[in-house]
């Protein structure tokens, strides 16, 4: 059992001024998750007739991407490849100070305390559009041939849970690793080819319009990613975007056929 001093960002709503408040949490088991420690704090706050701390959480098993706190300066804390819910109190030295901040980005407006609105990521995803696939009866297994390593690489990209830690950790609040993961999971598979180039153009455009920053190749994103998605996927996105900028719809405006006027 250990005690901690936690500094938590409290802000009533988007427009209000926020501030840090320090709370003391006592008798925390080392087997508690970080969110359970916050649950303990909230129960205490409620019993003291105070407003509990608002924070996002859902599955609590590291697969939904709902939780996301900046803990001592690092999104999801300093443990490698974990979400906040999979971070345990044994990773923290007893009687120390823990500073908890919300994800900070122009594209993530703050809702309350530690909760931010990450729907900008959904809009980026939606801008990618549809995938042309055969409908009807399910195709036989292995009908479409995919090399094992390609399938693995696409799967690595697809493990992105859209938590936004890459944006939160980036000095420029850039969403490049997110966009790279979402484009690569399709770009590496045969099924993703028909709209591959247009997808990279429209998703990057949406990312820009949502107010995310630009990539400076700092690679903080891959270090913070709870799914350990490497920054090499950003190079893949850069390649696709460059290719798309040069070749997408290149024949559209080149039709010389004009109807003669009457």
């Amino acid at each position: 059992m250990a005690n901690y001093r936690v500094n938590i960002w409290r802000q009533d709503q988007t427009e209000k001024q926020g501030r840090f408040e320090q709370y003391r949490v006592e008798d925390i088991s080392e087997d508690m998750s970080f969110l359970e420690m916050l649950d303990v704090l909230n129960e205490k706050l409620i019993s003291d007739d105070l407003v509990p701390v608002a924070f996002d959480h859902d599955c609590r098993e590291g697969i939904c991407g709902a939780c996301g706190l900046v803990i001592n300066g690092i999104p999801h804390g300093k443990e490698c490849g974990t979400t906040t819910c999979q971070l345990y109190m044994r990773h923290f030295t007893a009687d120390t100070e823990i500073t908890i901040e919300p994800f900070r980005a122009q594209a993530f407006p703050l809702i309350k305390d530690l909760m931010v609105d990450r729907s900008s990521l959904d809009r980026v995803l939606q801008s990618g559009g549809y995938v042309s696939v055969h409908t009807g009866a399910a195709a036989d297994a292995n009908n479409v041939l995919i090399a094992k390593h390609k399938a693995d690489d696409a799967f690595t990209a697809a493990t992105c849970i859209g938590c936004g830690a890459c944006v939160a950790v980036c000095r420029n609040a850039s969403g490049m690793l997110f966009v790279a993961a979402k484009t690569s999971q399709l770009a590496l598979l045969p099924q993703g080819q028909p709209e591959r180039l247009e997808r990279s153009l429209s998703m990057v455009k949406q990312m820009q319009d949502e107010g995310f920053g630009n990539c400076s190749n700092h690679y903080e994103c891959e270090a913070a990613c709870p799914k350990n998605i490497p920054a090499s996927y950003i190079a893949q996105l850069n390649r696709d975007f460059l290719n798309a900028s040069m070749t997408s719809k290149e024949y559209e405006s080149q039709t010389h056929c004009k109807s003669l006027e009457e």
């Binding site: 690092i74 609040a173 690679y219």
Partner: peptide, 19 residues
């Protein structure tokens, strides 16, 4: 643009791979 993308700074900053 990058400055604008993060209007509120973090109180604690920690670099991992940033040189």
């Amino acid at each position: 643009q990058n400055k604008k993308a993060r209007p509120v700074a973090y109180a604690v900053n920690k670099d991992m791979q940033l040189t």
